[in-house]
Design a protein around this nucleic acid. Sequence first.
DNA 1: CTGCCACTTAAAGTCAACTTGAGGTCAAGC
DNA 2: GCTTGACCTCAAGTTGACTTTAAGTGGCAG
Lengths: 133, 133
Amino acid sequence: MEILDIGDVAERTGVAVSTLRYYDEIGLIASVGRRGLRRQFGPEAVWQIALIALGKKAGFSLDEIAGMFRANGTVDLPRPVLHGRADEIDRQIRDLTVLRDALRHVAECPAPSHLECPRFRKLLRVAGRRGKA
Amino acid sequence: MEILDIGDVAERTGVAVSTLRYYDEIGLIASVGRRGLRRQFGPEAVWQIALIALGKKAGFSLDEIAGMFRANGTVDLPRPVLHGRADEIDRQIRDLTVLRDALRHVAECPAPSHLECPRFRKLLRVAGRRGKA
DNA sequence: CTGCCACTTAAAGTCAACTTGAGGTCAAGC
DNA sequence: GCTTGACCTCAAGTTGACTTTAAGTGGCAG
């Protein structure tokens, strides 16, 4: 259970084999070797891929993700860069919170048009400010 | 200042004219009319587009965003659907929090390899759980 | 009335992130 | 030893979200 075939990795992560090959191709993940032609991965690949999926879901491009974590799963970026990324994510969390609140509000507010509701307008103002920045 | 040319909307929102035309084409926004050939928008378009930008930044597709807000800026989806969307965003916020914490941890943790650090492994476990769901 | 310029359309092009397809390889089970 | 099936490569195709291009239109300043 130390070394995994690409198919095993696919099964454990829920990521398609073709996608894993693609990630390997672009250097986002790295196989530990080959058995014949077959790529073999160490068990840490599963964690790496989970992180990649997380980053993707967070709206980061594969390039940006590659900039956060190395193919071997380690990170050796300067701290300020990492903190910068974290701050970026924090901003995104705040944006999402606005969106979520807007949605929840819309689900509950009895105003005839939401554009007339002061609470909704306030949410939109926040959205506008973020948009322009 | 009631009615805006597409160029004015572009300027106020920071979104390219071609993009606005594209949004119009796919029914994501709606012009209130034309002056000659020129599309005209009401001032609410600015808020709508801010919301679209917000949703995009949050990683939603234009289709998904279209499913949240109508072209005219109002919403008339059933409440459970809206709450479902909000819950989805909540999950995403939690995911982002994991990613942010992982990043911040990596920036600070002195462990030789992060894969050996128990705190990091715990973060990854959370990531793994989310990935499979 | 003329020219300008921001707009118009339709179609084609671009980019990221994959997926699909055709044809090939190899280790394992029968 | 032969088949099977999961893998391989390389190229081409797909999708979403736009942007670009070419050719045209029309309101307004001079």
